[in-house]
Computed example of a mutant assay.
Amino acid sequence: MSDAIRVLSTLALKGAVHGLAGQYQAAGGARIDADFAPTLALLERLRAGEAADVVILTREGLDEITREGRMVAESCVDLARSWVGIAVKAGAAHPDIATEAALRTALLGARSVAYSRLGASGILFARLLEQLGIACDINARAVIIPQGFTAERLVSGDADLAVQQISELKQIGGIEVVGPIPYELQTPAVFSAGRMAATNKPAEADRLLRFLASPEVAPALRESGLEP
């Protein structure tokens, strides 16, 4: 049996988890074996029987699998909030996205916009396009990726703007985060963690959860683009 603790995490926490893994192990914790994907993809994998010790999802996703009996309810903790933002390729002009009208103009003026089909940010953005009345115009030339980091499409030149959680945008080099979509147009995603009911390492899982929810990890969360 591996000594590592298996973590399945939403992409938004990838930077933070990678940054904290060494700190956790140096403090006497187990090695973290982490895999990252959008919440909806992780839900499918968990329901198909994939094993893990700790899972980090959106709060809604965590609540779903808790109701299904896969997660220990009393172990669940909220870790961070995240806002959806917009990025451009490094060196490119930063469009004005400070207001609803400015954002609408910026999106319509882009050659192509990259966003995610499965991620929480992509679901929010698709709804926002409908709300702004520009869904047909934007989607006719959008780059909609099934999963992964939308900002990669800025580096490759496939898109002028990338939309995703700010913590996910910051995972990619060669880009610049313009800022968040206006706060009044979005609800922050809350990312939470819990212990899987079927884990054979409950004590180590709980130790990791206490660490992730502790004040000492707050700087790493902020650095990665999240709000503790």
Score class of each variant (00 low, 15 high):
3 D>Q: 15
4 A>Y: 07
9 S>P: 10
10 T>K: 05
14 K>D: 14
16 A>R: 07
17 V>G: 13
18 H>E: 15
19 G>L: 12
26 A>Y: 12
28 G>N: 02
28 G>W: 01
28 G>V: 02
32 I>L: 12
34 A>W: 06
34 A>S: 14
35 D>C: 10
41 A>Q: 14
47 R>I: 03
50 E>L: 07
50 E>T: 11
50 E>I: 07
52 A>W: 05
53 D>Y: 08
55 V>R: 02
56 I>F: 10
57 L>A: 02
69 G>F: 07
70 R>G: 08
71 M>L: 15
73 A>R: 12
74 E>C: 10
75 S>H: 13
80 A>G: 01
86 I>V: 09
86 I>Y: 02
86 I>H: 03
88 V>L: 01
92 A>S: 04
94 H>C: 04
95 P>R: 01
95 P>N: 01
95 P>W: 01
97 I>H: 04
100 E>L: 09
101 A>I: 11
102 A>E: 06
102 A>I: 04
103 L>I: 06
103 L>V: 10
104 R>M: 07
108 L>A: 05
110 A>N: 00
111 R>T: 03
112 S>N: 00
113 V>L: 01
114 A>E: 01
115 Y>F: 13
116 S>F: 13
117 R>V: 13
118 L>C: 08
118 L>A: 14
120 A>N: 08
122 G>F: 07
122 G>I: 04
124 L>K: 12
127 R>G: 15
128 L>Y: 10
129 L>Q: 05
130 E>W: 09
134 I>E: 06
136 C>A: 09
139 N>T: 05
140 A>W: 02
140 A>Y: 00
141 R>H: 04
142 A>V: 02
144 I>L: 06
146 P>S: 14
146 P>D: 12
148 G>K: 11
149 F>W: 11
149 F>G: 12
153 R>S: 09
154 L>Q: 03
154 L>G: 05
156 S>P: 09
156 S>D: 13
157 G>W: 07
157 G>Y: 06
158 D>A: 11
160 D>I: 04
161 L>M: 05
162 A>Q: 09
163 V>D: 01
166 I>D: 00
167 S>G: 00
172 I>G: 10
172 I>C: 09
173 G>M: 06
175 I>Q: 03
175 I>M: 09
175 I>R: 07
177 V>G: 02
178 V>Q: 04
180 P>K: 05
181 I>F: 05
181 I>Q: 03
182 P>D: 10
183 Y>Q: 14
184 E>F: 13
188 P>H: 00
192 S>D: 03
194 G>Y: 05
197 A>Q: 12
197 A>E: 11
200 N>A: 15
200 N>W: 10
202 P>S: 14
203 A>N: 15
205 A>M: 15
207 R>A: 15
209 L>F: 14
209 L>C: 12
209 L>K: 10
211 F>L: 13
213 A>D: 07
215 P>T: 11
216 E>T: 15
217 V>L: 11
218 A>W: 05
218 A>I: 08
220 A>N: 10
222 R>V: 04
223 E>H: 05
226 L>N: 00
227 E>W: 02
228 P>V: 04
